[in-house]
Nucleic acid binder design. Structure first.
Length: 797
RNA sequence: GCCGGUAUGAUGGAAUUGGUAGUCAUGCCUGACUCAAAAUCAGGUGGGCUUUGCCCGUGUCGGUUCGAGUCCGACUACCGGUACCA
């Protein structure tokens, strides 16, 4: 087969003309919604990794259609973001032009693969018709008090000159460019995602996400149960509230630590006698990036705040207050009670600065803090207890009764910083009026379009490039008509992707973001595939966005996604991640040109466990080419007979492929088809039925060549328009099977016997076997285990 | 550090979920076709031995079981996520 190019184009055209893959909203057939994460159309084109997941879900979509489902399998573009903006700045063009070019390339590449997307539903997050509704939904957040502006110490990327969410700044470096993130105080729009922390956690029960995906969500939300305890400041009305997960160790608190930014320092500065030293320390802490703060884990620093002390509420002991940057302002209350005997960080700090260590639980604290269970000592009301659970409970009861503190749950998940100081994003549709304050842009004026300018640069003072475009910024207040200014921040990249799967249901609606009919009909995404790298952030944002829409009555389901799976990466031939600098990039276009789309698709399905990483192998690719060529040649061996030579194998293969495609075991599905082909090749000739079932089962994976084989050999109707093969439950097993005989668990004989044989017959046949007899000679049979249709194990002494 | 995951021939990987370890493919070896090569086809291919057969073998050590790649306990290595989260 070397004329695959013509064949591929031919069938791609056929499918398009016959609208084989069109999803119809409201159709009587049962719906099935298959979704792959839409790509960011980068300048470097499609990656072989895209081919893997698109083919995998294409196979599912194609099979489901043949099984009679109304399948929604859409594709679009997530095209806002930094690379397009950088490119545009450099070349003095509008980013929308760069995006248009990239989308064109991507689309052509994907179409060349024959993926069965319903292209009539295509859109880009950068289309004003789309981002109109992203803006509209932001205003719903705003109108329901879920969006607010606040002065925040935010993660700031000095290179991109923009603020980043915690999620974007994971590891202390900018997700986009890898630059160290610094802290900068700025007014930012935030969405109250923290309100949904518990919902996001419990909502997981309503999904069928893979365990590793669920766990990623749980870790990110970071729920912890503990207590808030109030410590009085000696000789003052002020108190210091701490958050602790170990209220049971309260008797062991020998000092307190507040974050350098903690407001109590400013409040009590008149009492503090070493303010200069503390100011210096605050500067020092601020100058450190988040990254350095975490790098210096081993070397703790801090300053004792002189002039003030605190009172431990449980025993009225006077203890010192320190400030140290190992306590973060952003978590809990920004202040801790330090229990060096039972917390490793406090232990290190206390050792370094010579602070008293009092154990309240028996255990070895000679080298590090003891964090395990044990007998409580030095703890008055807790003395003698041995279980942490009990001690925590008793302490909480005491604290609440005496109004010294209360039980408190904390989440690592914080509000979503929703502002970006960038040009290429959805403008935040709010207007600032000196008289009326923040005023939403009226619905009828949406979308707030990005201006059509060619020159803009990020500003050094941290404002969005939009701020310099006066004719865009200046406007009138929708409320009072006075002169006003637009918000110049834009939304983060994750905004558009938080609801795109809803838009696919009704992509051309210009009256609503999605019609209720479409929402009711399509419901949840049945099967969502994406990369592991998006399971924390994107999935969390989408799952936050959707329950909000649900709570205000706009969507019918709280959880938008039923099953979420993630594919493994395709690595370079050397086992490393593909990258230009390593020179190990495989371009899918080259493979399609040399081997054809079907070979590439088949190979990527055969490469290994779908959920695991796999290295590219050109030899493996060639093997798949051989496989398809051999099927093609089978067409020359057709006879005029009907039916199947090996009925059992055919039925087994139908079952295997059907099951495997539904459970992402694409590699064994291909292998089953290879086994079937190997069997066919031992025949002198094959029937049309035999060839037809083989190409039919392979069709979801290699759609072009199978349609062509089907057509040129007149095997039957166009495969894409034919019902999926069904197997006969009664014909899955042979008349015979190989009985394995073991003696003491070791295989000593194999006998081919009839399938309907009784257990007794199995046992006597087993004992009759020549080789088995040898091993039984002179031994006493203790027992015999008979597993029907499998084996007999004779235990001897 | 913590939380996950993985470990099977020369290689990618199978294994009915406790029942024949190594399906399938790649690579390699041998042969056929060819002047030759490629392509194709046929056969072989875990290690060892005293080869009708036997012993060993799924990261290491131990356990449960008639029977363990699969279950349990301890460990090692690699990969991924996350991190002064109190």
């Amino acid at each position: 087969m070397d004329n695959f190019k013509g064949i591929e184009e031919k069938w791609q055209k056929y499918w398009e003309e016959h609208e084989n893959f069109k999803a119809i909203t409201g159709d009587k057939k049962e719906k099935y919604y298959v979704l792959v994460e839409f790509p960011y159309p980068s300048g470097s084109g499609l990656h072989v990794g895209h081919v893997r997941s698109y083919t995998a879900l294409d196979a599912v979509a194609r099979m489901k259609r043949m099984k009679g489902f109304n399948v929604l399998f859409p594709m679009g573009w997530d095209a806002f973001g930094a690379p397009a903006e950088q490119y545009a700045i450099k070349n003095h063009i509008h980013p929308k032009e760069a995006v248009k070019e990239n989308i064109k390339t991507f689309k052509k590449q994907i179409q060349n693969l024959g993926i069965s997307f319903d292209w009539s539903r295509e859109f880009s997050t950068t289309d004003p018709e789309y981002y109109k509704w992203t803006q509209w939904q932001f205003l719903q957040f705003y109108k329901h008090g879920m969006a607010y502006k606040a002065k925040k110490n935010i993660n700031w990327c000095p290179k991109c000159k923009t603020g980043l969410s915690n999620e974007d700044a994971a590891g202390g470096v900018c997700e986009r460019c890898g630059t160290k993130v610094v802290q900068k105080e700025k007014e930012q729009w935030l969405l109250k995602m923290s309100d949904y922390a518990e919902d996001l956690l419990t909502g997981l029960d309503d999904t069928k996400f893979a365990d590793r995906v669920k766990l990623g969500q749980i870790n990110w939300i970071g729920k912890s149960k503990g207590a808030e305890v109030d410590f009085k400041i000696n000789g003052s009305d002020e108190k210091l509230t701490v958050y602790t997960t170990r209220p049971d160790t309260l008797y062991g608190a020998t000092f307190m630590v507040v974050a350098p930014e903690h407001p109590i320092i400013e409040k009590l500065k008149s009492k503090i006698t070493n303010m200069d030293e503390i100011k210096k320390y605050q500067e020092f802490a601020k100058s450190k990036t988040e990254f350095e703060r975490t790098e210096l884990v081993k070397d703790k620093t801090g300053v004792k705040i002189e002039g003030i002390t605190a009172i431990n509420p449980i025993n009225n002991k006077e203890i010192a207050v320190w400030t140290a940057d190992y306590v973060m302002m952003g978590y809990g209350t920004g202040a801790i009670m330090a229990v060096p005997a039972h917390d490793n960080r406090d232990y290190e700090f206390a050792k370094k600065y010579g602070i008293e260590i009092i154990p309240v639980i028996e255990g070895d604290i000679s080298k590090e803090a003891y964090t395990g269970d044990g007998k409580y000592i030095n703890s008055d009301i807790l003395n003698g207890l041995t279980s942490k659970e009990e001690a925590v409970h008793k302490m909480l009861e005491y604290l609440e009764k005496n109004q010294l503190g209360k039980a408190q749950t904390n989440y690592r998940l914080q509000d979503w910083i929703f502002s970006r100081q960038r040009f290429w994003g959805e403008p935040i549709p709010l207007i600032y009026c000196a008289k009326c304050g923040w005023v939403p842009v009226p619905d009828e004026d949406l979308p707030v379009r990005l201006p059509d300018v060619v020159n803009y640069e990020p500003t050094d003072d941290g404002e969005s490039p939009l701020a310099n475009i006066e004719e865009w910024v200046n406007c009138t207040c929708p409320k009072c008509g006075a002169k006003a200014r637009r918000e110049t921040d834009t939304m983060p990249n994750w905004a558009g992707s938080s609801w795109y799967f809803l838009r696919y249901m009704d992509p051309h609606n210009n009256k609503e973001f999605v019609s209720k009919e479409a929402l009711d009909y399509w419901g949840k995404v049945d099967w969502y595939n994406g990369g592991m790298e998006h399971t924390a952030r994107h999935l969390l944002y989408a799952r936050f966005w959707n329950p909000f829409l649900y709570n205000i009555g706009l969507v019918p389901n709280k959880e938008p996604i039923d099953v979420r799976v993630s594919h493994g990466m395709i690595l370079g031939p050397n086992g490393e991640k593909m990258s230009k600098s390593k020179g190990n990039v495989i371009n899918p276009d080259d493979i399609v040109n040399e081997y054809g789309a079907d070979v590439l698709r088949t190979y990527e399905m055969f490469i290994g466990d779908y959920e695991k990483d796999a290295s590219w192998s050109t030899n493996g690719l060639k093997g798949c080419k051989r496989f398809l060529d051999r099927i093609w040649r089978l067409g020359t061996k057709l006879n005029n007979k009907q039916g199947f030579t090996n009925v059992t194998l055919v039925n087994q293969t139908i079952k295997k492929v059907t099951d495997d495609l539904q459970s992402m075991k694409y590699n064994t599905a291909v292998s089953a088809l290879m086994i079937l082909l190997n069997d066919y090749e031992t025949y002198d000739s094959v029937t049309k039925d035999e060839l037809r079932v083989l190409v039919h089962l392979l069709n979801p994976i290699a759609p072009h060549i199978t349609e062509e084989i089907n057509e040129v050999n007149h095997l039957g109707n166009v495969l894409a328009e034919s019902p999926w093969p069904i197997y006969d439950e009664t014909k899955l097993t042979d008349d015979n099977f190989e009985l394995v005989v073991q003696v003491n668990g070791k295989v000593r004989g194999r006998i081919t016997v009839a399938s309907n044989i009784t257990k007794e017959e199995m046992e006597s046949l087993a004992k009759d076997n020549e080789n088995v007899k040898k091993h039984l000679e002179g031994k006493e049979i203790i027992k015999v285990i008979v597993i029907p249709k499998k084996l007999v194990n004779i235990v001897v002494k």
